[in-house]
Every structure is written in structure tokens, then in C-alpha cells.
Amino acid sequence: MRAEHELIAQWIAPGTRVLDLGCGHGDLLAHLRDTRNVFGYGIEIGADQIRSCVEKGVNVIEQDIDGGLRNFDDGSFDTVVMTQALQALHRPNLVIGEMLRVGREAIVTFPNFAHWRPRLHIALKGRMPVSKSLPHQWYDTPNIHLCTFRDFEVLCRDNGWRVLERLVADSNHVQGTLMQTLPNLLGEIAIYRLSRK
């Protein structure tokens, strides 16, 4: 299981209800079901991912997150999770709003674009960063709304969303001490736990 899932799982209480946006192959939901008796649904558009979910017995709904979550009632989940999908959305701010409408809490993870490596890439090469975690060229990347720790916290503040917890990690999900002091420069992965005010 991805290390990120371990970090997220600790925020999810046993026996609760979880909606996982962009659930991929359903690993997080299967893990939560098996270890924490969590009931949930995944939302996904990838055909192979959907099949993997079905094989694992994970509930999966083929649906485009950018279209909103209108088919889910207000407050119908304890937690709505979205890992590494924020940057690929057309209107990420609206989707987070939807997450906090249907869930009591939201967990969002994304790559920090202000990490020193992409900064250096632009500064020295004068070109859009291409790296292991962001391997695409600017013209074919699905990551159309990259942001930084600071950007995200401004968005939360402007929308009145409360940051309950924040984790700063590198691409191996190790939470180094130095990056906790300078997250925007040294953190590669941002993991936020939010609630409505």
C-alpha cells in the first residue's frame, strides 16, 4: 500500500463512512475496509482502475469529479478523500467545496509546486519542470492546476475552510524535520485535513 495511504488512514476512525475521489485501483478503500471496517465508495473514470476496484470488492462509481457530487447528499460521509487529483481538476476550488458539503471532513493531497527542485528547474533551465513526480511535458500534462502550500492555505482561508491538520512529506512520504519548518520550500507532498468552519 502507498505510504500516503498509511498517513491518511490514521485520520479515519473505524466504522466511519468514506468517499474517495479519484480512488484509483481502490487500495485505500480496501485497506480501510479490511483494517478499520470502513464503508465507502470510490469515484473514478479510469477503466483499468474501475476493474481493479470491482475485483477487490470495492464499491466504485464511474463519474467525473469535475461534474460535481450532486448525486451525494449533504453530510452523507464522515470523510471525503482526494489523493493526488487536485491538480488535475478543472475547478479544484469547487470540488473541495463539494467535498466539504458531502463530508464532515476532507483530506486532500497534492504535489507542492514551490518545492526547491521545480523552483530551481525554472530558475536555471527556464523551462517547465519535469520530474519523477511530475513526469509530463507542459503540453500534455493532466496537471493543469498546480499549486503550493501557501496557495492552498490562502484558498482555505478565503473560503473559510478550517485546516485541522497538515503533513509535509517528501516524495517517499518521509516527514523530515527541516521541511516542517520550511514546508513551502522543502516539502514535496502536501497532505491536508480540512473541515467546514
Binding site: 463512512r17 464503508f39 465508495y41 474501475i50 476496484c53 470491482v54 470495492v58 464499491n59 466504485v60 462509481i61 464511474e62 463519474q63 448525486n71 451525494f72 447528499d73 452523507s76
Partner: peptide, 19 residues
């Protein structure tokens, strides 16, 4: 089909849906 799926979701039933 989504009408069926959404009614099941509202009831918190196990359902998977593919288009």
C-alpha cells in the same frame, strides 16, 4: 442507469457502476 445508482447511493447500499 444512474437513477438506479443514485437511489442506491442515497440508501448507502453496495453498488458499483460503469459506463
Amino acid at each position: 442507469s444512474r437513477e438506479i445508482v443514485n437511489a442506491l447511493l442515497k440508501n448507502r447500499k453496495n453498488v458499483s457502476y460503469a459506463e
